[in-house]
Design a protein around this nucleic acid. Structure first.
Lengths: 213, 213
DNA sequence: GTCTATAATTAGATAGAC
DNA sequence: GTCTATCTAATTATAGAC
């Protein structure tokens, strides 16, 4: 297998996500990140400028993947009827749950960074999180007005959704010990998504309705 | 102000919680922990045996405080009627939300440790988390049977509650940037608790009913 | 581009004076 | 018990041969 420039960069990015997710920025070492893909530590400074630049590139990479997962959902606009808006929102929640299960690094890194104010946090919030936060808040307000959504303030619901959706996967090693089950199993993930959607949207007209792709 | 033996131990424990919560076990430095309370780094090895022992003592300390907050709630037993059980459960959730707001270190440390299997994680799960997990699962099953609880599997509801309840406080620095509000303000905390209880227990007979103390 | 060697810094732990 | 000094190990980053 050839190790082209892009190949090694991709491998380093994926390795960085795992290490930064598991240990945080300070706890992760560039040696471990390199070793995990059979590279040497100085290659990180060669392919990326610094540990910080590697972190930023890895975060961009991962939020990019999340964006791809949600890209083909219809954009909510003012003309949607509430039932259709709710179905689209439900589908977005399901996809977010699946993404959180497949890529726990995203929310692990979020939590690691969000516990202390820093330049990295501000960069990540403005670049990646705020667009999601704003979109969720606005749609939720309309679903509340339509009587479909649970009684949670639109300013807070982002944290309820993200927290409830991702914690079993963020804390997957703990969940394995605690439940004896494998939280990333397909059936477990879908059950979690179903429960979350039904709880968040008790007024969903037809829970089985799936949006068109 | 005197600095007795117990005094300095308490200060070091509190400082350790903040640092371990913010940076994780690897990222936190014993020097910073000591400096935060105007002590010197070797005092940690004097008053505690090691960084690891300090961590364990700090975790015990914090879970002990959570236990105190919940201690006077009536133990659920098989004879409780569902409405009373639900009222007690709702009160426990409210107190957990308040505790998470006042002591975000608890859930920060949980998340830092739970993202990777380790001796520290196993110790913490068996000693502190499993009793809570078991209690929540059993009560939730009964509330589901009574038609009071939202449609979430009893094996998963622990993560829904903990994740949704604590993330705004775990990620408080992010929430401040994102919402412009202070998530630890009393009104914000109570609104979050109210929304969570109403969402988790849509069949609660009387949401305003408070349990006796 | 890769790899060895190493510089510069910082970590946790310990010894010993007081 | 506290504090200075220091040990060993591990960190990120860089220099230079290939």
């Amino acid at each position: 297998m050839r190790r082209t420039r892009e190949d090694i960069r991709q491998r380093l990015l994926d390795s960085a996500l795992v290490e930064f997710g598991a240990k945080g920025f300070d706890g992760a070492s560039t040696r471990s990140i390199a070793q995990r893909v059979d590279a040497h530590q100085p290659q990180i400074n060669y392919h990326f400028d610094s540990k910080e630049a590697l972190w930023a590139a890895a975060v961009d990479h991962l939020f990019g993947r999340l964006g791809e997962e949600l890209a083909d959902l219809p954009r909510p606009d003012g003309t949607d009827d509430p039932a259709r808006l709710a179905a689209t929102f439900a589908e977005a929640v399901r996809r977010f749950v699946r993404f959180a299960a497949a890529h726990p690094e995203l929310n692990r890194i979020m939590v690691h960074e969000a516990t202390e104010d820093s330049d990295r946090l501000r960069w990540m919030v403005e670049r990646h999180v705020r667009p999601m936060y704003d979109a969720i808040r606005d749609v939720w307000q309309r679903l509340r007005d339509a009587g479909i959504a649970a009684p949670i303030d639109p300013a807070m619901v982002h944290y309820v959704i993200v927290g409830a959706a991702s914690l079993p996967f963020v804390n997957a090693p703990e969940a394995r010990l605690l439940t004896g089950a494998e939280p990333t199993d397909l059936a477990w993930v879908e059950a979690h998504a179903d429960g979350l959607v039904a709880t968040l949207l008790p007024g969903l007209p037809d829970p089985s309705l799936k949006v068109e792709r």
